[in-house]
Amino acid sequence: RIASALAAPRTVALLRTRVRGVPRVRLAWTSGGHHRALAWATARALVARTSAIVNDPRAAPLRVEVAPEARGTLVIVPEVRPDPRFAYRVRDVPAASHPTIAAALARLGGVRPDDVVWDPFVGSGLELVERARLGPFRRLCGSDLDPRALAAARENLAAAGISNAELLLDHACRAHPPGVTLILTNPPMGRRVARDGSLGALLEQFVRHAATVLVPGGRWVWLSPLDRRTERFARAAGLTVEAGPHVDIGGFTARIQVLRRPGA
């Protein structure tokens, strides 16, 4: 009965929406235990019924939870494993970017071989890692007020095989690396860091400062926790603003913004 339920066209169609190629599944018993004899019998019966699903008890991306007595409902659960793509993240700091967000920001920023990349709130360094992985650049620079963040960034960059990034202990509103063509950053988020109501003032000061750091023709990609205010600040500083999607950041939202300084 279990094999028949798995081989049913509706089940196969559902499984195919969750993976690429032929779905591979692993049986898991709701009552616990291995039930090896039943598992083998179910696997043989599944092979006899269909080639559209493969039983893979070791590395299947989907787990099928079912009662050994074949009653109730089949529950399909994606297996969540660490992504080897982000194995370089060996250190973390509070409020740092998730690597998938860092990767998305880097891709939106694009690649120019003459890029001088600055992350003014470098945190654990993931935006710099992801930009370096995309293609050639001239310089990578990150700054932060927290020595622990710089230490974490240094370790993550080293784990990713990047040895030529510059990490500076400096305030985002004072640091002024020369020739910056691309700013990639995930700034402090209000509910996590700036709990005293000063976040808006910090972001306004930073936007005005960063607009002077960015060279003509430069671009800037970030997550803004106060997107309407930062858009207003950016336009007042002479930047163009392209609004991207909202992103859920652990229970509240920020918005991706792509800013550019007109010019060469």
Rank of each mutant, 00 (worst) to 15 (best):
P178K: 03
D146M: 11
P99Y: 05
T212Q: 14
L157M: 10
G21S: 15
A175W: 07
L126V: 10
A243M: 11
E65P: 03
V111L: 05
E231M: 11
A28G: 13
W29G: 12
A234M: 10
G238C: 02
A151F: 01
D119S: 05
A87K: 06
G161T: 15
A60V: 15
Q205M: 05
R71C: 03
S31R: 14
L140H: 03
A95Y: 11
P78A: 12
A237E: 02
V117F: 00
V221L: 05
L108W: 05
D115M: 03
A264W: 01
R85W: 00
P94F: 08
L203T: 08
A152I: 07
C141S: 08
W222K: 00
G251M: 06
D92V: 08
E79T: 14
P178R: 09
E65R: 15
R174N: 05
V19P: 03
V22C: 13
P23K: 08
A45G: 10
E204A: 12
R10V: 15
I76K: 01
E155H: 11
V22M: 13
S224I: 05
V75P: 00
R85H: 04
T17R: 15
R154S: 13
L27P: 03
A39T: 13
D227F: 00
G33E: 10
G251P: 00
V90Q: 10
G190Q: 08
M189Y: 11
P147W: 07
H34R: 14
R154L: 05
F121W: 07
A103P: 02
A70T: 06
N156A: 06
G33F: 01
G142R: 05
G218V: 03
G190F: 07
E130A: 15
V47C: 08
A67F: 13
L38G: 08
V47Q: 10
D56P: 01
A234K: 06
A151W: 00
L38S: 10
R107T: 13
L14Q: 12
H246M: 13
P177F: 11
I53E: 01
V180C: 07
D119Y: 00
A3G: 15
T17K: 13
Y88K: 07
P82D: 06
R71P: 00
V93W: 01
R10Y: 06
R133G: 15
A210T: 11
S198N: 14
A158N: 02
I256T: 09
R232I: 14
A70W: 02
R10G: 14
R192H: 03
G109I: 08
A5S: 13
L126F: 00
G218E: 03
R154Q: 14
I162E: 04
G263V: 09
E166K: 13
L203R: 09
L226Y: 00
D114V: 07
S31V: 15
L202K: 10
D170F: 00
A151D: 10
V247E: 02
P225A: 02
R91A: 15
G179K: 03
F137D: 01
